[in-house]
């Protein structure tokens, strides 16, 4: 069984998920996540050697679309939903680093 989840784990996960937690929330979430993971211990402990994972409940494959252009969305309609836009683009605060 995996080691129980710690507040440090929860803080790390919050960073990954771009969520800020108060100290109180951190404590609370750690306890709640630990409880759910403890409930999942039965699943974790199951011997599933040789059992393939199911990603799709009903197996279908090769769902493909023809390479044909269809009309795009209306830019004004799309940008009207944006919190901020400028010269046809979505405006965002400073980006601190290059994309990974």
């Amino acid at each position: 069984m995996a080691t129980p989840i710690s507040t440090a784990d929860v803080a790390h996960v919050a960073r990954l998920a771009r969520l800020a937690l108060t100290d109180e929330e951190l404590e609370q979430f750690t306890g709640q996540l630990a409880a759910v993971l403890a409930h999942a211990a039965d699943v974790e402990a199951l011997d599933t050697t040789g059992v393939p994972p199911t990603a799709h409940p009903l197996p279908i494959d090769n769902v493909l679309r023809d390479d044909v252009v269809v009309p795009c969305a209306d830019r004004e309609e799309v940008l009207a939903q944006a919190p901020a836009s400028e010269s046809g683009r979505f405006r965002v605060p400073r980006i601190l680093g290059e994309a990974p």
């Binding site: 679309r65 252009v69 269809v70 795009c72 830019r75 799309v78 940008l79 046809g88 683009r89 979505f90």
Partner: peptide, 18 residues
């Protein structure tokens, strides 16, 4: 994954869809 045109150099956000 969508039928938007794959065009270089068009006006910004004109080849977009949901």
């Amino acid at each position: 994954f969508c039928g938007c045109a794959n065009n270089f150099g068009d006006q910004p956000n004109t080849n977009v869809c949901p």
